[in-house]
Amino acid sequence: MSGKEYLIFDLDGTLVDSMPFWENLATELLHRHGIDQLPADLHDRIQTMTLTDSAVFIQELFALPVTAESLAQEMRALMDQHYRNDIPLKVGVYAYLQNAYQSGRKIVLATASSSVLAKDCLRRLKLLPFFDFVFSCEDVGQDKTQPTIYQAAARYFGQQPNKISVYEDALYAASTAKRAGFHLIGVYDHQSKKEWTDLQNLADETIDFATVVKGENK
């Protein structure tokens, strides 16, 4: 358990195993529009974008005869189904959050997903009561290549960054939080295991929730 009283958690890849669904979203969307031949690096190119920005990118790249806004709505609808129905919780997360909540920690979410989708997912997985607030990149107007969302959470807490732990699995987001002065806890995720060594070197602490639940500390 983090020694800090104030905790910021990422959602995708940190608390829930949603990254396979996000990685397949552009493919799922484009298949619906009759496009099966996709660039091999498409996911890498949109990985750090908000859903709105990725819709604009996809609309322009494939010259689709629909608006970027309608694509974004379609993508939200697809992910809404997944968040409400089948995105699973990562092993060990519930017990960890419950312990943090019961010990009096103040907890917020900072996610690149929309706040509505995030809340739907947390509610289904019985996690929503643990969180004081849900921050979304779309709501603050910047993705996690910028520290805006973490700074918004710090203002909410009324604390300086060094008093707050940020839990992130993605190296680019973790780097942003670290540069902004937050206490960084790197979270292991099998989808980003290629970055794990770099994340371990960057982070102040690391954790694998699946081993914590077995009584092993990372």
Results as ranks from 00 to 15, higher is better:
residue 3 G to Q: 11
residue 5 E to A: 11
residue 7 L to W: 08
residue 9 F to I: 04
residue 10 D to M: 12
residue 11 L to P: 08
residue 13 G to Q: 10
residue 14 T to C: 10
residue 14 T to P: 02
residue 17 D to A: 03
residue 18 S to V: 05
residue 20 P to D: 03
residue 20 P to E: 01
residue 21 F to A: 11
residue 25 L to Q: 06
residue 25 L to T: 07
residue 25 L to G: 03
residue 34 G to R: 12
residue 38 L to F: 04
residue 38 L to V: 10
residue 39 P to N: 02
residue 42 L to P: 08
residue 43 H to F: 15
residue 43 H to M: 11
residue 44 D to Q: 14
residue 45 R to C: 04
residue 46 I to P: 08
residue 48 T to H: 12
residue 49 M to W: 09
residue 51 L to W: 06
residue 53 D to P: 06
residue 53 D to Q: 14
residue 55 A to I: 03
residue 56 V to R: 13
residue 60 E to T: 15
residue 62 F to P: 04
residue 65 P to T: 01
residue 66 V to F: 09
residue 69 E to P: 00
residue 70 S to G: 07
residue 71 L to M: 14
residue 71 L to K: 03
residue 74 E to P: 14
residue 75 M to F: 01
residue 84 R to C: 13
residue 86 D to P: 03
residue 90 K to M: 14
residue 91 V to E: 14
residue 93 V to L: 02
residue 94 Y to M: 08
residue 96 Y to T: 11
residue 98 Q to P: 02
residue 99 N to P: 01
residue 100 A to G: 00
residue 103 S to A: 12
residue 106 K to T: 07
residue 106 K to P: 01
residue 110 A to E: 09
residue 111 T to V: 06
residue 111 T to I: 07
residue 112 A to G: 13
residue 122 L to G: 10
residue 123 R to L: 03
residue 124 R to D: 06
residue 128 L to E: 13
residue 129 P to V: 11
residue 131 F to N: 02
residue 134 V to Y: 12
residue 134 V to K: 04
residue 137 C to I: 15
residue 144 K to T: 09
residue 144 K to Q: 15
residue 146 Q to D: 12
residue 147 P to R: 13
residue 150 Y to D: 03
residue 151 Q to N: 05
residue 155 R to M: 14
residue 159 Q to S: 03
residue 168 E to I: 01
residue 179 R to D: 04
residue 180 A to H: 10
residue 180 A to D: 11
residue 183 H to Y: 14
residue 186 G to Y: 08
residue 187 V to F: 13
residue 187 V to S: 02
residue 193 K to M: 11
residue 197 T to P: 05
residue 203 A to K: 14
residue 207 I to T: 11
residue 218 K to C: 15
residue 218 K to S: 08
